[in-house]
Write a protein that binds this DNA or RNA. Structure first.
Lengths: 190, 190, 190, 190
DNA sequence: TATGAATGAGATTTCATTCAT
DNA sequence: CATGAATGAAATCTCATTCAT
C-alpha cells in the first residue's frame, strides 16, 4: 500500500497559488494545477472533492498560515509602538514573501468559490491587531477615529507596498521598510 | 464589428461589471453577460469580437473614465495641498461610486485577458498625480522618499477605504472623508 | 432565431431507446445518444439538464404513452371478457411494437436514475386493469384470488411473450395471439 | 489469475449482486464492489482480469447454480404433473430467495458485457423443462401449442410473482404458492 | 441587426486499471 | 497476496462561438 502523501497536498497548493498569480482564478484549470503539481488529473480528486473544495481548502490554509505569521514575536505586554511595528513588519513580510497567497486571497474574495463564512473568517484574523489599535487609542498614542479607518491606512498601504515591490522587482531594504513604516505611523499617530 | 448602438454597449459593460463584482472574472460566462444585459448571446458578438475583446475594451473604458474623473476640478496652478486634496477626494469618490469598476480592474490585473500593455496604460493614468507629488517634494511639503511609496500610502489606503465602505455599507460623511484625508496627509507630509 | 425543435426531443428519446436495447443502460453514453440522434453532445444539454434528467423524462414519456395505448378501445361498459381481451391485446401489441421501451423501463427499474416516485407512477398505469379484474371477480368470471397474482400471470406472460417474439424473430399471427390469450384466460377464469 | 480463496470470490459475487439489485449494472463501479466486498480495489483484479470478466463469471455462476436448483428433486420417472409442480416450485423458490440473481441476469441480458454465447447458455438451462413439457403434450395433459408459449406463461408469471413478492414484501405461504400454481396449471392444461 | 439554438472544443469529473509498498 | 493511492482515458458537462432564421 502506498500511503496517502500529505506532502502532495502542499504541492497542489503551491501549484494553485503559482497559477493564480500568473493568470488569475479565471485562468486556471484542474489540468493545469495537476500538471504544475506534477501529478495526474485524477489524483487531484483523491485529495479534493472538486475544484471548489480545493479553492476553499487553500483559502482556509492561506488565512490560517497568514494569521500565524502576522502576530509572531508580537507580545501584547510590550509598549504599543513596538507591538505595532512588529505586526506591521510581519504583515509586509508575509505579503511580499507570499505574494501568490495575497493575490489568491484577493481573487477569491470576488469569486464563485468562497462562501460568506470564509470571508468572515478572513476578517477575524486581524482581531488581535484591532485590539492593539483600540489600546493605542486609549493610550492616546494614535488618533481617536474609527479603527476601521486606521486599519485601512495600515493594511491598504501594506497591500500596495507589496504589489509595487513585486511588480517593479524592488528590493525592500530596511531603510525602505522603515521609511514606509514612518509614513504609516505619522498617519495614525495622535 | 462595433456599430452605433452605444447604449447597448453600455448595457453590456454595466452587466459585466455587476457580474464580476458578484462572482469574479472566474464566474462569468458570455451567456450570463448577455442575459444580464438583456440581449441575446449572439448579439454580444456583434459588438465584441470575443470574450477577450469585451474584457479588454471594458478595461480600457474603465481606465479612461477613471482617469478623467481623478483629475476633474484639479488645477495644477493651485497650491499643492488643494490639488492633492481634490485628487484624493476624486479617487475616493470614484472608487466608491464605481466600486464594480475597481473590483473589475483588480481582477483583470491577474487574469489571462489583459496584456502587459494595458497594465502599463493603467499605471499611466496616475501620471499627473505623480507629477504633483514630485512638486510637493520640491516644495518641501511632503516627505522626500520615493514617490512610489507615497503613492502606496495614498492609493492603498483609498482602495481599502472603498472596500470597507462598500462591504460594511458605511455612509461616507464629509467628516469621515476629512478624517481619512488627514490620516493620509499626516503620513506623507514633511 | 432558430426555434427550439420539439421534434429533436423525440429523436433523442428514440436514440436512447435504441441504444439501451442494444447495450443496456450501463452501455450508453451521452456522446452515443447525441451521435445516434444526429446532434452535438452539447445540444443534448439544451434539452436535458443532465443524463439523469434525460433518463427520467424518457421514463415518464414511456409510462404515459404506454398507459394511453393499454386502454385504447377499452370500454368499461362492455362485457368483462371483451374488455379484458382488448387490454390484453393492447399490452401485447405495445410490448412488441415498442420493445425498446419495455427493455428501457425494465432496466430503469433497477438503476441509479429513477426515483421511488416514478416507480409508483409506473404501477399506477395499470389501475384501470386492476379495477376491471376486481369486477371480473365480482362477476364470478375469474378466480377469487388476490388481484396481484392474477396480474402476475397476465403481465408476466405478456412480457415473456414479447421477449420471445423479439429474440426469436417470431411473427405474431392472430392464431398465436389467440392461443396465448387462451392460455392466460384459462389460467385466470373461475 | 484466479487462485484459491474461494470464499473471497463469493464475497465479491455477493457484493456485486447486492449492488446491482440496488442500482443496476449502470450504477456499479469496481470501487463500490470492492468496498461492499470488504476488500481493496486492487484485490478485485487478483481474482478477475477486469470488470467484464467479473460480470461474465458471475453470470455463469448464476446460470449454473440456478440450473442446479431448478431441477433438484425432479425425477423424470414421476408422473408429469408431479414433475412440473416440483420444477415450478423450485423456480419460484430460487427467484425469490435469490432475487438479486434474477435482477442481475435480467440486467445482463441487455448489457455490453454478456456475449451471445452466454445468452444461449442461459436458454439451455431450461432444456429439461422443455423436454418435460414436450412429454406433457404427448401425454395430452397440456395444450398442444408451441412450447415457447407454454414456457412464456410459466416463466413469465414466475418472474412477475417473484418481483411482486419482493417489491411488496409479501410472505409467500403455501396457499399463495398453490393458488399461483393452479393459475399456471389451468392455463396450460389441455 | 437581433436572436437563441446548435456546435464542439475543452473543462470538470469519474472510474477501470495499474503499481509501488 | 493485499492494499489503496495513482493514473489517464473516457465520461459528463460547460461555454465561447457560430449560424440558421
Amino acid at each position: 500500500m502506498k500511503p496517502r502523501d500529505e506532502n502532495k497536498i502542499n504541492e497542489i497548493y503551491k501549484a494553485t497559488l503559482n497559477l493564480v498569480k500568473a493568470s488569475g482564478l479565471a485562468g486556471i484549470t484542474m489540468q493545469m494545477v495537476a500538471k504544475e503539481a506534477g501529478i495526474a488529473t485524477g489524483t487531484l480528486y483523491i485529495y479534493f472533492k472538486n475544484k471548489e473544495a480545493l479553492i476553499n481548502a487553500l483559502f482556509d490554509v492561506c488565512i490560517r498560515s497568514s494569521a500565524s505569521t502576522f502576530f509572531s514575536n508580537y507580545d501584547p505586554a510590550q509598549p504599543f509602538k513596538i507591538g505595532f511595528h512588529t505586526i506591521w513588519l510581519n504583515i509586509v513580510h508575509r505579503r511580499v514573501t507570499h505574494f501568490n497567497e495575497s493575490i489568491f486571497i484577493e481573487q477569491c474574495f470576488h469569486s464563485p468559490f468562497i462562501d460568506e463564512e470564509s470571508k468572515v473568517r478572513l476578517r477575524k484574523i486581524f482581531e488581535p491587531l484591532l485590539h492593539l489599535i483600540e489600546r493605542g487609542k486609549k493610550e492616546h498614542l494614535i488618533k481617536d477615529i474609527d479603527t476601521t479607518w486606521l486599519l485601512s491606512l495600515m493594511v491598504g498601504a501594506i497591500n500596495e507596498i507589496a504589489k509595487r515591490t513585486m511588480y517593479y522587482h524592488i528590493k525592500l531594504t530596511s531603510e525602505i521598510l522603515e521609511a514606509n513604516f514612518q509614513l504609516c505611523w505619522d498617519g495614525i499617530k495622535a
